[in-house]
Amino acid sequence: MTSFPSIISRRRRIRWHGTPNALKDAVFVVVLWASGVLAIGAMAGVLIVLAIGSAPALSQAGLAAFVLGADWYPTAGEFGLVAMVAATLAVSAGALLVAGPLGILCAVYIRYYAGDLAGAAFRVVLMTLAAIPSVVYGLWGMTVLVPHIAAWQPPGTSLLAGVVVLSIMVLPTVAVLAEAGLRQLPSSLYLGSLALGCARHAAIKRIVLPSAKGPVAAACMLGLARALGETMAVLMVVGNAVAMPDSPFASVRTLPANIALEMAYAIDVHRSALFVSGLVLMAMVGLLLAMRWYWGGPDDPQF
């Protein structure tokens, strides 16, 4: 009986069994934690790089020159972002005013009106809208929308064109997230109100939507965050003159468009000023994310 284990142990000594298991386990754990750290590092890296890029302009002109200054002549030391921040907010808020209610109606349709097949088909429509590249929206806006607006109120490239294009782009975000929020509600709410004799529209308006206020608001916040950051489609239709948005037909320039337009030739402080534009944009998005977390939406991690 004693010979059996000794044979195994002798063979172990003779044959090479590859890397010891303990080492493999250790390597695995290190790789695992490194992946987690890398994900955090990616986020931190983007913010740090943004801060480093902004530092020269911020130390030269000061933050006040950016957030209070009215004029943007970066090569002459005028770094005012006020007009562009106002334009970014105007375009995004306009888009949300259109896409918010429409998106909520679309979510209600999928959840409470459509059958399985129609609901799935309409989801495909929303996904397709979300998948269309922003340059394609921009191209459509330039060739269809802008000429129509120009025939009415020249020159056509305007805040209004930006709002229309952007609201189409933001709509699927709001609709899909609001639908996810509605899905999280206990079905007893809706079924219970029907059982009490509510009509469908009344149950939705008085019971369902008020109960889903948080998630629906969070969906709108994320739609707004999307709108703030959208670059190319807006750039292609708003005209890009740096001016306060004083009429829907005025040509304006948004913060992301400003970066995209000038980054190609900007050097030194001018380049750094564009990083400050990015930082201000990021701060606006961060504020919206904070509001979204406060309202606690559907924890859709795709965002």
Binding site: A39, G53, G229, I259, A260, G278, M282, V285, P301
Partner: peptide, 14 residues
């Protein structure tokens, strides 16, 4: 989730 909300132009800068 913050990374997912970063505008693409900011990714371009970084």
């Amino acid at each position: 989730s913050v990374l997912a909300a970063v505008p693409s132009i900011v990714f371009g800068l970084a």
